[in-house]
């Protein structure tokens, strides 16, 4: 059994909604989600060798998504995935009016100001196990506005890998190529009918508003997990400490 711990925000709902179908094909993996909307996982803190909720609100939310746990005990997992933080673009971005150096600085800053650096630093403090990271998916293409990116997707991923992930021995996982439209957006079918993350504190609607294109659906979650699975398996086969070395 491979035990994967996933720390995420609302974007992790796509993976969680795809878990049952994924596990039907891959019963040898167990996914444990520690997810909370927006920046609420900022209340996770390293304490006594665990990564634990420091507020009752986050504790309740983590119990809901993980099936009863409000802290992460690193020894209980073989690998970690920090999912959905940083990297979100903006429709007002117009790289034609900006220097390439500024675009790089902005793209990097958007990741640096997210919870991704905090979570991977905290996890690496606690464990030598492989840690993976995935940024917020690119927004779904809607056929109306031309999606704008400050940088080419591959260049941005390489920069984040080098600047943010490498210092902690973390592997960045780009979106599956089949989910992308020219590296600028996510294919429309993956952004339709996405469902919100379960919320411990307020009723969760069945699906997002029809105009929502930043969150992905279970089909995307399935594609993402299938794309990730061989990488996870190969990394663990190479030895649990490989990523940290």
């Amino acid at each position: 059994m491979i035990r994967l711990c996933i720390i995420g925000n609302s974007h992790a709902a796509a993976l969680k909604r795809a878990t049952d179908a994924f596990r039907a094909d891959h019963p040898e993996v167990r996914l444990s989600f520690f997810a909370a909307p927006s920046r609420e996982t900022a209340a996770l803190e390293v304490t006594d060798g665990r990564y634990a909720a420091s507020t009752p609100e986050l504790a309740a939310q983590l119990r809901l998504t993980s099936g009863g746990h409000d802290d992460i005990v690193p020894s209980e997992y073989d690998a970690f995935l920090v999912y959905g933080f940083g990297g979100r673009g903006d429709f007002s971005d117009n790289p034609r009016l900006l220097s390439a150096a500024f675009c790089r600085a902005v793209a990097l800053e958007r990741v640096r100001r997210s919870l991704l650096p905090r979570h991977i630093a905290a996890l690496r403090q606690l464990t030598h196990a492989p840690i993976f990271a995935a940024l917020t998916p690119l927004p779904g293409i809607d056929g109306i506005r031309k999606p704008r990116r400050l940088m080419r997707y591959k260049a941005e991923m390489a920069m984040v890998q080098a600047q943010i992930c490498d210092p902690h021995g973390v592997t960045l996982c780009p979106q599956p190529p089949e989910s992308l439209v020219k590296g600028r957006a996510t294919r429309a079918e993956f952004a339709a009918g996405s469902q919100p993350l379960e919320n411990a504190h307020r009723p969760t609607p069945g699906t997002h508003d029809r105009s929502e294109r930043r969150h992905m659906n279970a089909a995307y979650g399935r594609v993402w997990l299938e794309h990730f699975w061989p990488r996870l398996r190969a990394t663990l086969a190479d030895g649990p400490k490989r990523a940290a070395e």
Binding site: D90, S92, D93, N94, L98, F102, A105, V106, E109, R110, R113, L150
Partner: peptide
Amino acid sequence: KPPRRVSGEV
């Protein structure tokens, strides 16, 4: 103007 959501420092 810079793009939105860019820190004052950058």
